[in-house]
């Protein structure tokens, strides 16, 4: 029975002392401890998130660098390609030009030859004509010296004309 009958004195002291210690610890121990814990946790969390952010930034930076590098590489390839192409073009065009020039010169030569040939032929023709005329004149002059021959010739011409 003694065990389960609470003593007034102990109740009193327990209440007073416990409330006092609750107040004192609450004010001077739990408050600073809890706020310090909270602060520390917050700072750790901040540090972690900052580290994470830095990591992400680093990654972004690295990715940027790589992109830049890749772009530069692409640019270089493009320039090289263009240069090669340009060189090829130049060679090609020079070749073509040379060919054209050659062709043109051949054509001119041909034309000149043709002209010369034509001129030569014309001269030959003219010469042949004048020669023929001279020959004919000589012939006619000798033929027309007698009257009958003249008539026979005229007769021939007439016959030829009617036949036409």
């Amino acid at each position: 029975m003694e065990l389960v009958t609470p003593g007034i004195g102990l109740i009193f002291w327990q209440l007073v002392v416990f409330l006092l210690v609750l107040f004192l610890l609450g004010k001077f121990a739990w408050k600073p401890i809890m706020s310090a814990l909270h602060e520390r946790e917050a700072s750790i969390e901040n540090a972690l998130s900052a580290a994470e952010k830095a990591k992400l930034e680093m990654q972004a930076l690295k990715a940027d660098n790589e992109k830049l590098l890749a772009e530069a590489r692409m640019e270089r390839d493009k320039i090289l390609n263009e240069a090669t192409e340009a060189a090829n073009n130049i060679v090609e065009t020079s070749k073509q030009k040379a060919n054209e020039e050659g062709a043109r010169m051949i054509a001119q030569a041909r034309e000149a030859i043709e002209n010369e040939k034509r001129a030569a032929i014309t001269e030959v023709k003219n010469m042949a004509a004048s020669l023929s005329l001279e020959i004919a004149e000589q012939i006619l002059r000798r033929e027309l010296s007698d009257k009958t021959a003249q008539q026979a010739l005229a007769q021939d011409y007439i016959r030829e004309v009617t036949l036409n």
């Binding site: 102990l10 210690v21 600073p32």
Partner: peptide, 25 residues
């Protein structure tokens, strides 16, 4: 309202509590 053995022990424990936790704080 005597300071019995239990009250004395409680006071001792309270002193311990206050000392330990004020040091920690």
């Amino acid at each position: 309202l005597s300071i019995t053995k239990n009250v004395a022990s409680m006071l001792l424990s309270v002193v311990l509590l206050l000392v330990i936790f004020s040091v920690i704080a």
